[in-house]
Design a binder for these strands. Structure first.
Lengths: 250, 250
DNA sequence: ATGTTTTTGATTGATTTTGATTGATTTATG
DNA sequence: CATAAATCAATCAAAATCAATCAAAAACAT
């Protein structure tokens, strides 16, 4: 039996059972315990599985990679409406920061014939931006494979090379009391930095983000104007007490 | 039995079984082990299969999606060979700079099971890097839509945040007297900077780049090791007078 | 027919993989 | 908490596989 063949057997076993013992693997493959241990070490190094005492379990990394396309389809129409309105705020000659995320990406087609410069930390944005012939800059940074965002100190540092007329941010949640938030502190830091560098900041968030709270607070609602949609009228009124809010409806 | 005939038998075997041992092949073909080894080497060079210890398996490379520009890239086979050799120079734990360009991009599949950190200024590289689960950073900078390279002062600045064990550069031409060169002064500047930050620099260039001279000189041949292929023997000797050169042949 | 080139199979020593064994570490059990 | 059982990483020698070399055989050109 070839080493590669054995590796594939192990991964197939894992795909079926989610978790396997070394004993099970040696039974199936007829290889010694030592060999299987070496295999597991190797496969873990590749990131294909996670070792646990006595065996190994499946690594969900590969499944998670689909998360981008799935997310994208959620509330798509709403996101497009929000993005369309946001784009209407852009004037010729503006310098814009486009945050990573599936909402802000919808903004790009509406910028096509405007004479603007865009800076983004979202990798999926880049392709669309160049296709629409928009002069664009990317921040540097570590690639967060799951979301295609650039993060880390390098991203912050390269952001500081710019000033923005407008800044469009995506968030995971917004809350009357707890402000705008997102799960990743690194991404929160990026958004804070972009906000500081911009004359005006907008947060784009569909109704599903309302009252959601996740790990990292970005800043209070008051600090950026909120563009959202399909929120109950009274909620919009409540929120408008503390921030500038544009409530659309589709 | 004809060599070609044997090659086809091997590929057919592979199509059926996905993975075969050398023993299996010798049984079917009645050829010696040495001959089969030679066949496998040849077929791997063509990109028809991938050798593994003890046998061979169907090449994933062909299954994987490639961007249009890659498919259209000239001297692809040569570039793959060069990239493969370049990848063999990479050790676990290395920090690598991967220059933008169609040659360096071929290096990525060969890095997939190595424990490395990659920094690149090539946008097309990013997708492949993440697909292979490689920890990667992007330099910031202006997007040069034509080549998908990141350039300008922001790119230079963010490069200076790193140090590299190895630096793999692409060029448009190399010349005994005029050194390595490329048409865009901005890109030349990036390459120079990356070279300064790296312990060792390699230039990857297929034979079509030989004796080409374009607008911007990057640096003299002596400053970086040259990996090339299909160059006449005497040319390799001449070049080896002034620089460290690895001449492959396909 | 003769000399040249290419292909082949055998042989070599180097490299890689393997399974057994060791003692250390972790987990289970009383 | 202490002990036993299971699992672990590290090491080593045997086995398998490898690339490189060389001479014989085959294919080729002249």
């Amino acid at each position: 039996m070839l080493t590669t063949e054995r590796h594939e057997m192990i991964l197939n076993l894992l795909k079926e059972k989610q978790i396997v013992t070394i004993q099970e693997i040696t039974d199936v493959t007829d290889a010694s315990e030592s060999t299987i241990r070496r295999d597991l070490t190797e496969l873990e190094k590749r990131g294909d599985l996670e070792r646990v005492h006595g065996g190994a379990r499946f690594n969900e990394r590969k499944v998670q990679e689909y998360s981008i396309s799935e997310k994208e389809s959620q509330n798509l129409q709403e996101k497009i409406e929000i993005a369309k309105y946001a784009a209407s705020l852009v004037k010729d000659g503006d310098c814009i920061f486009l945050d990573a995320g599936t909402t802000t990406i919808q903004l790009i087609p509406f910028l096509q014939h405007k004479d603007v410069i865009v800076v983004t930390n979202g990798l999926p944005h880049i392709d669309l931006l160049t296709k629409h012939g928009i002069t664009s800059y990317v921040t540097g940074g570590l690639i967060k494979a799951k979301t295609g965002a650039l993060i880390g100190p390098q991203a912050i540092k390269s952001l500081n090379d710019f000033c923005f007329d407008l800044c469009f941010l995506g968030v995971n949640g917004f809350h009357y009391e707890f402000g705008y938030n997102t799960p990743d502190p690194e991404e929160a830091h990026i958004k804070q930095t972009a906000h500081k560098l911009a004359k005006v900041s907008y947060v784009l968030a569909d109704h599903s983000k309302h009252k959601k709270v996740s790990f990292s607070k970005i800043f209070d609602l008051a600090k950026a104007r909120l563009i959202t949609s399909n929120l109950p009228k009274n909620e919009v009124e409540t929120l408008s007490e503390i921030t500038d809010i544009k409530g659309l409806s589709t």
